[in-house]
Amino acid sequence: MKKLIRIFSIACYLIAVLLIIFTVLSIFRNAGIRYLKMLDFPRIQMFIIIIINLFILWILIKKWRWYDYLITIGLIAGLIINAVFLINYTRIVPVKVQGINKVKPSEERFSLLMANVKMSNNRTQPLIDLVENEKPDLVLVMEVDEWWNKKLEILDEEYPYSKQALNELAYGMVLYSKLPLKNVEIDYLNNKNVPSFESIISLPGKKEFVFHSVHPVPPTYFKNLPDNAGQEEKALKKIGKQIQEDKRPAIVAGDLNDVVWSYVDNLTGTQNILYDVRIGRGFFNSFNANNFLMRWPLDHVFVTKEFRLKQLKRLPKIGSDHFPVFVELVL
């Protein structure tokens, strides 16, 4: 029994040391090194494991030595570091995008459903059912290839306006809209195989806003898929510059392949122009739908100051590794 307890103690110490190292390295998430950026993703998990590890060590340690104090201080520091990133996606902090319950006659409301369907997923009906149930004004679908595009043609009758940029590399994108789309441009901001849309959307009351649909590549490497190895991911900074110069109401939405943790300015290169609808509301973890223990927010909506939030929710599974996200906004 004593031997098992000793082995268990050693394992706890090793886990503690790794947690401290990983948390400290995660501070350098914007250093341009993909392995450091990947440590930015599992902050929720590291935060929880650090609490469990601290609790176990305090039970196991009978006689405190210098390294026990050192490891405890390191774990508490790790807890604080991760908390600094996580706290903005909790109700402890005030929201950045104000909520609204009653819409004034001068204001216009509209909704967006966005979903990364995962190209290899062949279950189309769950997404179609969600669209029928939620009845969004805009539907943004990512990882769309020719097969998925054909299956989604059923939406054409309800959504007379649409734009497609299809490919077989998991970065195809389709935008469906009940609202008129003006001047839709397909941009390739940082990779010739990764499209994004810039659309001007007209609301019934004649108000307009710019809608940026984007799906940049992740920091991890996937064989035979687009990759930005050796260069900085600049797509969102380019969009941020456009919004900063344009001055019109704007929305940025999509699978950003980044957890963000509310640091929108760092990601987009803007300064208090774009606001994360999650701040002060919750994590709404959209990835990984297939793994309860490894989830974090990857699908995001940023808006300029003119918008108010009516509703934000994560929708049920559709067979993808992402949960769809639904947002209702007021302009």
Rank of each mutant, 00 (worst) to 15 (best):
residue 279 I to G: 00
residue 263 Y to H: 12
residue 143 E to C: 03
residue 6 R to L: 11
residue 250 A to V: 10
residue 294 M to T: 14
residue 232 E to V: 07
residue 202 S to E: 15
residue 313 K to H: 06
residue 149 N to G: 15
residue 80 I to P: 01
residue 282 G to M: 10
residue 72 T to I: 08
residue 323 F to T: 07
residue 268 T to A: 02
residue 233 E to F: 04
residue 132 E to Q: 13
residue 201 I to S: 06
residue 293 L to R: 06
residue 257 N to F: 02
residue 46 M to S: 04
residue 52 I to T: 04
residue 113 L to F: 07
residue 63 K to A: 03
residue 6 R to E: 12
residue 201 I to M: 01
residue 178 K to C: 11
residue 86 L to I: 15
residue 222 F to D: 09
residue 31 A to P: 01
residue 121 N to A: 10
residue 73 I to D: 00
residue 78 G to K: 01
residue 283 F to E: 09
residue 292 F to H: 10
residue 232 E to T: 15
residue 55 F to E: 00
residue 213 S to K: 05
residue 294 M to F: 13
residue 144 V to S: 01
residue 228 N to M: 04
residue 97 V to Y: 08
residue 193 N to T: 02
residue 30 N to K: 06
residue 22 F to R: 00
residue 151 K to A: 14
residue 264 V to K: 05
residue 275 Y to I: 10
residue 266 N to S: 15
residue 86 L to W: 01
residue 75 L to R: 01
residue 25 L to R: 02
residue 318 I to L: 07
residue 187 D to L: 14
residue 282 G to E: 13
residue 138 L to Q: 05
residue 104 K to F: 08
residue 127 L to R: 09
residue 215 H to Q: 10
residue 92 I to W: 05
residue 49 I to W: 03
residue 62 K to G: 11
residue 294 M to A: 13
residue 240 G to T: 01
residue 153 E to C: 07
residue 210 V to D: 09
residue 209 F to N: 04
